Amino acid sequence: MLERRQKSRRRVCLSAQIVGDLTSAPQNVRLRTISDGGFELTTARECLPGEDVLVLLDRDNGKPRSATVVWRSFDRFGLSFMPGSRPSDDAVPGPLSKLLRDA
């Protein structure tokens, strides 16, 4: 299979929460892959609260990151980080920073 990704992804299994807006309840999700530009997640509901969401990684000290949905397939979603919200834009503490440096 031809690899079409511009940046390599790193396989992970991180728990997170997705929030669409102030009226939607947080939704628990699992991050499956992550790169400097975005990530893939799975969810039990097969839907997200909107196209533009905030991602709250459990291991990222609760700092919200803005993302937008790029693709979807059943319970899997691909999201890209919004400018200024990428993990490389600041010092990410803990294991996530090592994952992004190694990618």
Rank of each mutant, 00 (worst) to 15 (best):
A103C: 13
E51L: 07
T68D: 07
S15F: 07
R9E: 05
F77P: 02
S80Q: 13
Q17H: 13
Q6E: 08
L99V: 15
S35C: 08
F81I: 12
S88E: 11
R59M: 10
R65E: 05
D60A: 10
V92K: 01
D60H: 04
D60C: 08
S80R: 15
S15L: 09
D36V: 15
D52I: 03
D21E: 05
T42F: 00
R32S: 14
V53H: 04
C13P: 01
R10N: 05
W71K: 11
L14W: 12
S80H: 15
V55N: 00
L100M: 12
F81W: 10
G37D: 11
S73P: 05
R10G: 07
V29S: 14
L31T: 13
R59V: 06
G50D: 02
L54K: 04
G20L: 00
E46G: 02
K7R: 04
G62P: 05
N61I: 12
V29H: 07
E40W: 05
R10A: 12
D102E: 05
A25F: 08
V69P: 00
S24Q: 01
S35A: 04
A103M: 12
V70A: 12
I18V: 10
L56R: 03
I18A: 01
E51K: 14
R10K: 09
V29Q: 13
S88G: 02
R11Y: 08
R76P: 14
Q27F: 01
F39W: 02
A25N: 14
S73G: 15
